[in-house]
């Protein structure tokens, strides 16, 4: 017994056991059950196997493709906004802005939105983007002479509102990641560069960005997942899962509508499985291309 417990070969497995067990129990088993459920019709304690019928219906459903398009569009746009802007902000916070007190104030105020509940933020944004002339956003754009916009009732303005909410909320989080990344870059690199006569701008593009690669890969990965799995922001902004012409419907919103609102849990499981496959495919491609899977020595 004693020998077993002190065995060199067994120890690593013992140490990772808590993680592996939670992964299996809370993740692998539910995923497996979802895959099984996706081939069934589920109704109050009764399940009827239906083969691949749920997937067939999913493939033919116009709404699914629309939801996938909406999610993909949102994901791409959040990547385009929520990576460059926080990176520049992080560089500014680390280098350019005066006293540490101002820096800390700046950091804290950037991060506050992330601490706000999406539910509260969603309601506030919904009222800000009200379509009446008295709504805050309509008042603001009227200053530059634009007429009232029916924000949440038209496709592009609705998307702008959604992106505004996402930008407001997640800029701070991403900025923190980049600040952490920038702070781990050795100061000697910048020192050497400035002795060689490199400008601030050159330093940013030649030193900061290349050295931020691990952070970039990480932020991109979670942003892809976060973008495709977005649900709550749209749900709160449109005060529910329904939006004009489904312009705010995301894949998770679609899953929720079919599974919970229309009580078709088998079909919803199929949606979940497809989403899992899509996200895995995108993330694995991205991680392979960015070289994350290569061994340290090969890089």
């Amino acid at each position: 017994m004693k020998q077993l417990l002190y065995s060199q070969r067994l120890a690593p497995y013992l140490f990772i056991a808590p993680f592996v067990i939670t992964l299996v129990v809370f993740w692998m088993i539910p995923v497996g059950q979802s895959v099984v459920m996706s081939t069934q019709e589920v109704l109050y304690g009764e399940t009827t196997p239906v083969g691949f019928r749920n997937y067939e219906r999913l493939w033919q459903d116009r709404l699914f493709w629309q939801a996938l398009f909406n999610s993909a569009r949102y994901m791409v746009l959040t990547l385009a906004i929520l990576i460059p802007i926080p990176m520049v902000l992080a560089a500014l916070v680390c280098n350019s802005i005066g006293s540490p007190r101002i820096k800390n104030f700046f950091k804290a105020s950037l991060f506050v939105p992330a601490l706000t509940s999406v539910v509260v933020a969603g309601i506030v944004f919904r009222l800000m983007f009200a379509e009446t002339g008295t709504g805050l956003m309509n008042q603001i754009i009227s200053v530059i002479g634009l007429g009232p916009v029916r924000w949440l009732r038209e496709d592009v303005p609705g998307l702008i509102a959604l992106l505004a909410l996402a930008t407001w909320r997640y800029t701070g989080v991403n900025t923190m990641y980049f600040i952490a990344g920038i702070q781990s870059i050795p100061g000697e690199l910048y020192e050497a560069a400035s002795i060689d006569g490199a400008s601030r701008r050159q330093q940013f593009f030649r030193i900061t960005i290349p050295n931020l690669r691990p952070t970039l890969v990480y932020v991109t990965t979670i942003s892809i997942y976060g973008g495709l799995a977005m649900f709550l922001e749209s749900f709160m902004l449109y005060a529910g899962n329904g939006s004009p012409n489904n312009q705010g419907l995301t894949v998770i919103g679609y899953l929720y509508r079919r599974g919970i609102e229309e009580n078709d849990l088998g079909f919803a499981s199929a949606v979940g499985v497809v989403l899992l496959v899509v996200i895995l495919a995108i993330n694995l491609t991205q991680l392979t291309l960015s070289g994350t899977f290569r061994k340290e020595a090969d890089r």
């Binding site: 004693k2 013992l14 140490f15 056991a17 808590p18 067990i21 129990v25």
Partner: peptide
Amino acid sequence: RMWTSLAAVALSAGLVAAC
């Protein structure tokens, strides 16, 4: 050390039992 590893096992077993 033995108690520590036993505690780890107990903890993970508890997690499983909880659900």
